[in-house]
Amino acid sequence: MSSRKAILKAIKKNKPELSPLPEMQTFRNDTVDKLAYLKEVFKIIGGVVEEITDTEALPEAIKKAYPDKENICSNIPGFPLTTVDLSAIEDPHDLKDVDLVVFNGKFVVAENGAVWLSERELIHRAAGFITQHMALIVNRNDMVWNMHEAYQKMQLDRPGYGVFVSGPSKTADIEQSLVIGAHGARSMTLYLVG
């Protein structure tokens, strides 16, 4: 008997009586000030939130926050700070010297500061991790309260990859001391526009 068959057979024999799936809830919260909450959460997750009303002012703001960065990628067509064209790169290993990525994200979750980026936004799956710094742009109207609403908002299996990013890469593996910049981005700034 194949292992597949053996495992399925053993489960069938040993599983308990069918227990129903519970009714799902979304725990909506219409009274919470999502923006204020998000700003507090960003302090915990080690990221920075900037509010920009005029989209035109974005490049200037990013340049000011990240001066002297040489290799900059973006998924925004014609973004003026771009120096490396992501779509022209074939092998993701060639992204190893990227200093900064500037990505339009799909939406942000207020309860935990997580920004959703799918493969469409990242162009290369590795781009959001190999970079030294990360600037994400989300329209302030694209903010949901919690993860239940977040999963209602998207199709998970297309494209084949997507990630919630909540702050920069971090670790506390040495004596519980928080260190920002473990393997991935050393900083993460979220620009809320509109």
Binding site: V41, I44, I45, P92, V109, E111, N112, G113, A114, E119, R125, F129, M147, L156, D157, R158, P159, G160, Y161, G162, V163, F164, V165, S166, G167, P168, S169, K170, G184
Partner: peptide, 13 residues
């Protein structure tokens, strides 16, 4: 509130 990265894989790159 959540880990820094929650990655969803639905196929190879």
């Amino acid at each position: 509130p959540i880990t820094s990265f929650s990655s969803h894989f639905h196929g190879p790159k």
